[in-house]
Design a protein around this nucleic acid. Structure first.
Lengths: 151, 151
DNA sequence: CTCAGATCATCCGAATCAAGACGAACGTTC
DNA sequence: GAACGTTCGTCTTGATTCGGATGATCTGAG
């Protein structure tokens, strides 16, 4: 398996994943931004919808963003009225981010649009193949996906 | 398949790809940086090895980087003696980047280390599953991968 | 030959990102 | 209650990224 030149670049799953993510990012962003949302905004809103009650650092770890990056994201989303930071009664340090009704409506619309875009990008594959892809990606991400394992 | 809340975040292939790429990035970077190379450095060196004779813009398109980003990467690599920019006899605008002998030695070492890291990260899957994953990622990236289709 | 348009590498400016520092608040131990 | 280490959110700072503009060069049409 070791040629004189070593493994060539197209054997690098890491890079293929990176390029594929990049490509899908372009495809879905195109749709998300019609609603005035970046893909990352949408990710954050979706995480807030799926895992309510997380603190900002917990949320950052859940979506895989730096805490300072997430803060500026939340600033923007709060400024747009899609998120509120509510005081926590039992811990006065924490300001729990929550998705607003308007934010959830927008999230649902963008989710449908980007799901459609994804489905089209994946239309060359069978349902079984897509299911396997999803399963493998989950496995690769491992225990870093669900914030429950971080608490 | 449309619940009242719409598709949840874990159905988004785009995000799964992003997280998986992020995770593999951490795993392989860990090994690449033992040799003083970032993952992106390694990608660029590998592309130079695989497709010699590309101009800087062609190389940027081949690896999926912005042209200015690639320029600063090449600056760093050239400063480390891993890359040289050689004048092109037939086109005085172009400065063809080439990998040096030292660069190729380092590239081969990092390629082996990161391939081993990838193999370990993928050890839970069968060879057929990995092959399918690779094929699907290639398909997703589409014609943006090989520079031959851009010339 | 000349000129217009395209292409290459580079530079510039705005935006973004992440690591570290900081104050405030928490919980535990004395 | 006081002291210590930890966690939370924020601020600051340095580095990085990307889009657009620039100058030099090539190419093709007239």
């Amino acid at each position: 398996m070791t040629t004189a030149a070593g493994p060539s670049v197209d054997s690098e799953i890491t890079w293929l994943l990176h390029r594929a993510a990049q490509r899908m990012h372009v495809v879905t962003s195109e749709h998300a931004e019609k609603h005035g949302l970046s893909l990352r905004d949408h990710i954050v809103l979706s995480a807030l919808d799926k895992w309510p009650g997380l603190s900002q650092v917990e949320l950052a770890r859940a979506v895989g963003l730096d805490k300072t990056t997430l803060m500026s994201q939340l600033d923007r989303l709060e400024h747009q009225g899609l998120v509120v930071r509510r005081a926590n009664a039992t811990d006065r340090r924490a300001r729990m981010p929550e998705i607003t009704r308007a934010g959830d409506r927008l999230r649902a619309r963008v989710a449908e649009a980007s799901a459609a875009a994804e489905a089209e990008a994946l239309s060359d594959f069978t349902a079984a193949e897509v299911a396997l892809l999803r399963r493998m990606l989950f496995e690769l991400i491992g225990d870093h996906l669900d914030p429950g394992s971080c608490l």
